[in-house]
């Protein structure tokens, strides 16, 4: 048993290492279960008893050194390998990424959905009515008889005698009251039509109608509900004011203005220099409307309101031409 031979063998094998795989092969051939060191260690027992101890120590020292050396080599090759791999995984991270297909709801739908969400949270449920409406529901029952001056307020599309395209969502009030008894708390979002087409009017647009009827519904409740809506829709600090107005189907009637979001109230083209933008028409349900649907006005009171969705969307997004909503230009739709 010659330690030198072993040493020589170890040196030779170590110097043959070129790659990390070589390290593994050499480790097996030297240190493996059937490796060179095992052979030498097995052979120790063939020596004289007195020499065994010394030889054992020498072999172990050499083995330890070999192990360390192999570990060193392995680490160094691994580092090298990793470096190579890293180099190969280089990409130009400034190249553009791949955009996923993203769709958008129309800004009117987004605004409408938001309005419905707010009123639903205030306890209102959604009601519906037809777009092609009877004159009776669109006008008569709402206290707007034929030849009433208020008919001038709206340019009506006629289908045939007594049948119109609804000019507002208010007929839904009548339909709901005719079919249900109080208490009522409904909103009616929908499409409405007026015979008008210019920079501030489209022949079709959207409204949300609201109606609450119960015992002891007060004008102050109308103020409360609409204030909550405005604060949720436009922000907690949005200034708002209630101003007397006229609608044939409410009495008293109120228009709700919010502080102009374009100029912040100092006056601009959008708010016609008033600092205020009108967004809701509202009021206490007119006694005649209750009589028309057979409600007992001694028993119940109610409020109603209506607002234009386009108008609210225009304020929300700063759009100055209502017709933009209906060109359906992708460059417009993709902004919301």
């Amino acid at each position: 048993m010659d330690i030198d031979v072993l040493q020589e063998r170890v040196n030779k094998e170590l110097s043959s290492i070129k790659t990390i795989d070589d390290v593994r092969k050499v480790r097996i051939s030297l240190l493996g279960r059937k490796g060179v060191f095992s052979e030498y260690i097995d052979n120790i027992k063939l020596l004289d008893k007195g020499k065994r101890r010394e030889a054992g120590q020498e072999i172990n020292t050499l083995k330890l050194r070999t192990e360390n050396r192999l570990q060193e080599l392995e680490d160094s090759y691994a580092a090298e390998e990793k470096k190579k791999k890293d180099a190969a995984s280089w990409i130009d991270i400034t190249m553009p990424g791949k955009a996923p297909l993203v769709g958008k709801k129309h800004p009117i739908t987004q605004t409408l959905d938001e309005m419905v969400r707010i009123f639903t949270s205030l306890g209102f449920s959604v009601a519906e009515g037809p777009d092609i409406e009877l004159d009776y529901y669109n006008f008569e029952a709402l206290n707007i008889p034929a030849d009433h001056p208020a008919r001038d307020m709206q340019d009506t599309f006629y289908i045939q005698d007594g049948v119109v395209l609804r000019t507002h969502t208010s007929p839904v009030q009548i339909r709901v009251m005719e079919s249900q008894l109080p208490p009522l708390r409904i909103i009616a979002p929908g499409t409405v039509y007026r015979c008008d087409n210019d920079i501030s009017h489209t022949p079709m647009f959207h409204q949300v109608e609201g109606l609450m009827v119960d015992k002891n519904v007060r004008f102050s409740d109308l103020k409360g509900i609409l204030s909550m809506f405005v604060q949720d829709m436009f922000g907690k600090d949005t200034p708002l004011r209630f101003r007397p107005s006229y609608f044939p189907f409410t009495e008293p009637s109120a228009e709700v203005d919010i502080g102009c979001v374009i100029c912040g109230g100092t006056g601009c083209r959008v708010c016609k220099d008033t600092g205020w933008i009108e967004i809701v028409g509202s009021g206490m349900v007119h006694p005649q409307v209750f009589r028309n649907v057979g409600y007992d006005q001694e028993e119940v009171t109610g409020f109603a309101f209506g607002m234009g969705v386009e108008r609210i969307a225009m304020i929300r997004y700063g759009i100055d031409d209502i017709r933009q909503f209906y060109y359906n230009d992708i460059r417009f739709l993709s902004q919301f």
Binding site: T109, D131, T191, P203, F325, I330, L333, S334
Partner: peptide, 9 residues
Amino acid sequence: GFFELINFA
């Protein structure tokens, strides 16, 4: 990935 349109009825 669809855009919603609203056209006149």
